[in-house]
Computed example of a mutant assay.
Amino acid sequence: MIKRLAFRVALLLALILPATPALAWWEYGHGAVGRIAYMTVSPHTRHEIDRLLRQGRLLDTPTCPVRTIELAAYWPDCIKTLGERFSYASPWHYQNVNICRPFDLRAPCADGNCVSAQIERNVRLLADVRVPLRERVAALAFLVHFMGDLHQPMHAGDHNDLGGNRVQVTYGVIGGRTNLHSVWDGYLADRGISQPPGEPAGILSELSGADRAAMRQGTITDWSREGWEISRDYAYGSLFQDPCADRPRDAPRPVMTEAIVERLIPIVRRQVARGGLRLARLLDEAFAPDSIWLRPRERNPS
């Protein structure tokens, strides 16, 4: 009941406030990815997560607490409200890889300013017990959040439109007051995660042991390419017959129909599951004795 009420309040605010690109997966989606990871890590890893979250005061962000995995998952978006203090992290939430060119992370990830590079950086910080405790707490929150971002397709693919932020769409009762990025960030994600069997436990209940094991495989680059393909084939592809064709300025606003939404919900749920299970794998690797993330980079698992 409380979550349904919260969703209705969020929907009301969405009707009143202009859409912005500030959040990814919004709180519900990020929290679901974090909770799936928390549910599936080893007991040792869960203990280490709890130990770090208890030190959240070290971040000195009282308006953006990290007491739970869900709060930690939202922290990197929450700190955007703190002005210039954390502005350096803004480009870390996405990687605008052109869906109409061969997949290549080099330009979007120049100088490490992209989500996949920051996932690797933060898992290394988390694994290194020599790093000051405050920085490891921040690394945990960033890692949890960025794994959610990586699995939000509009943070993985782009068509020279800021990851769909410039693509106005019509969606349900919201009508035309939103864009493709925001639909995937929140409205579609909220519906997909809450649809029965809902919540993280419900999403996991649909997966066999073999499914879960398969989802945990691959590298950060593999996961980046996967999200880029989903962006092209499903996010853009569900609305445009040719996602790479030029769109005239006077073209009708695309409509995300109920039929399209129904086809996309399984994609959303699978991405949330993948994000959580893969995050669990990285956390288990980071907190393991003799973590592989502390070995020379040529042996980097990604």
Results as ranks from 00 to 15, higher is better:
residue 131 V to C: 09
residue 121 R to S: 07
residue 206 E to G: 12
residue 101 R to H: 07
residue 68 T to E: 07
residue 240 F to M: 12
residue 262 E to S: 15
residue 67 R to N: 15
residue 238 S to F: 10
residue 62 P to A: 13
residue 301 P to M: 08
residue 116 S to V: 15
residue 18 P to V: 01
residue 51 R to H: 08
residue 207 L to S: 03
residue 168 Q to C: 12
residue 123 V to K: 10
residue 202 G to M: 02
residue 82 L to T: 05
residue 24 A to I: 11
residue 9 V to L: 10
residue 146 F to Q: 11
residue 127 A to V: 03
residue 302 S to W: 14
residue 141 A to E: 03
residue 66 V to G: 06
residue 121 R to Y: 13
residue 246 D to F: 14
residue 35 R to N: 12
residue 157 G to D: 09
residue 262 E to G: 00
residue 203 I to Q: 02
residue 240 F to E: 13
residue 71 L to A: 12
residue 48 E to R: 13
residue 183 V to H: 03
residue 143 L to H: 14
residue 281 R to I: 09
residue 279 L to K: 04
residue 96 N to I: 00
residue 155 H to M: 15
residue 63 T to D: 15
residue 43 P to T: 14
residue 201 A to M: 09
residue 300 N to E: 15
residue 120 E to R: 13
residue 283 L to P: 03
residue 253 R to E: 10
residue 203 I to R: 01
residue 142 F to V: 02
residue 171 Y to F: 15
residue 92 W to D: 01
residue 143 L to F: 14
residue 275 G to Q: 10
residue 114 C to Y: 11
residue 101 R to F: 12
residue 116 S to M: 11
residue 184 W to E: 06
residue 72 A to H: 06
residue 204 L to Y: 10
residue 221 T to I: 14
residue 242 D to Q: 06
residue 185 D to P: 02
residue 265 I to H: 06
residue 12 L to N: 08
residue 199 E to R: 10
residue 57 R to V: 14
residue 238 S to R: 09
residue 73 A to H: 06
residue 75 W to N: 05
residue 246 D to I: 13
residue 294 L to Q: 15
residue 263 R to H: 14
residue 15 L to V: 01
residue 228 W to L: 07
residue 163 G to I: 10
residue 202 G to I: 11
residue 178 T to A: 04
residue 244 C to H: 08
residue 197 P to E: 00
residue 227 G to M: 04
residue 276 G to H: 05
residue 43 P to H: 12
residue 173 V to T: 08
residue 247 R to A: 02
residue 91 P to H: 01
residue 71 L to R: 12
residue 181 H to G: 06
residue 18 P to W: 03
residue 242 D to A: 10
residue 197 P to A: 11
residue 145 H to P: 03
residue 217 Q to D: 03
residue 149 D to T: 04
residue 300 N to S: 15
residue 115 V to Y: 08
residue 137 V to Q: 08
residue 199 E to S: 11
residue 185 D to K: 04
residue 114 C to H: 12
residue 59 L to V: 03
residue 291 S to R: 05
residue 80 K to F: 02
residue 27 E to F: 12
residue 126 L to T: 08
residue 203 I to C: 11
residue 264 L to K: 15
residue 261 V to K: 05
residue 196 P to E: 15
residue 268 V to A: 13
residue 32 A to D: 01
residue 119 I to K: 06
residue 192 G to H: 02
residue 175 G to T: 06
residue 132 P to Q: 11
residue 199 E to M: 06
residue 277 L to D: 08
residue 131 V to M: 07
residue 107 A to F: 14
residue 274 R to M: 12
residue 6 A to R: 12
residue 209 G to S: 10
residue 285 E to F: 08
